[in-house]
Simulated scan of single mutants.
Amino acid sequence: MIIPKNIEELASYAEKGKNVFFFTADWCGDCSFIKPQMPEIEADFPQFNFIQVDRDQYIDVAAEWSIFGIPSFVVTNDGEELGRLVNKNRKTKEEISGFLKMVEG
């Protein structure tokens, strides 16, 4: 999991490569629920870079990307959005994996 140090680094991932942006926050219980399973999800989808985005640190990005619930996932390829799993519900490993398989085509 890549954790960007600043907005410039985050922007560089948004522009190129196959990326999964994982919007989260320290205080988010549902985020804490899924975080221990993220290494397994990452291992199952090595074609993607997984970028953890702290919603509070990057609140402007979250607003610009219409991230109103966390945890949320946005998949991009060279700057083009391929899909999103954005809602206020708790996510399961199976739900996230199914979403990534669908986006992957």
Rank of each mutant, 00 (worst) to 15 (best):
I34K: 10
S32L: 14
L82Y: 13
P46T: 06
A25C: 06
E9S: 06
R84F: 00
F73A: 05
F22H: 15
G79D: 03
F45D: 00
K16A: 13
F48R: 14
D54E: 11
D78N: 15
V103I: 13
A43T: 03
K101Y: 12
N87R: 12
Y58L: 00
V103K: 03
D60Q: 15
E8D: 07
T24G: 02
G17S: 14
T76K: 15
R90C: 00
P71C: 01
G69V: 07
Q47E: 14
N89S: 10
F99G: 03
F23H: 01
K16D: 08
Q57A: 13
S72Y: 05
G17D: 14
D56F: 06
D44C: 09
I2L: 04
T76G: 03
F48D: 00
A14G: 13
I67R: 12
V86L: 11
E42K: 14
G105S: 10
E42T: 09
T24F: 05
A63E: 13
K101A: 09
N6A: 00
A62T: 07
F33P: 01
E64G: 09
A11I: 03
I34N: 01
I96C: 00
Q37C: 08
G98D: 05
E9L: 03
V20K: 11
K35H: 04
L85F: 10
K5L: 07
F68V: 12
G17H: 14
G105M: 10
F99I: 06
K91N: 06
V61L: 00
K101G: 08
I2V: 12
A63M: 12
K18V: 01
E15K: 14
N49W: 09
E42R: 06
M102N: 12
W65D: 07
E94K: 13
D56N: 13
I7L: 10
F50S: 07
F48T: 02
R90N: 08
I96P: 01
L85G: 10
I59G: 09
E94H: 15
P71G: 01
F45V: 03
I3M: 07
G69T: 08
I41F: 03
K88M: 09
E9V: 00
D44M: 06
E80I: 05
G29C: 01
V53I: 12
F21C: 09
F33Q: 02
G98N: 15
E80A: 09
C31V: 05
T24I: 01
K101S: 08
V20S: 04
K93W: 09
M38E: 00
Q47R: 10
L85W: 11
V75N: 06
K35L: 01
N19L: 01
C28Q: 11
V103G: 02
Y13M: 06
E15L: 09
Q47D: 10
A62S: 11
N49C: 05
D26M: 04
T92Q: 13
K101T: 06
I34M: 03
R55V: 12
Y13F: 13
S66V: 14
D26G: 13
R90K: 06
V74C: 05
S66N: 15
F99R: 08
M102R: 15
I34A: 02
G98P: 09
F99M: 00
W65S: 09
I2A: 04
C31E: 10
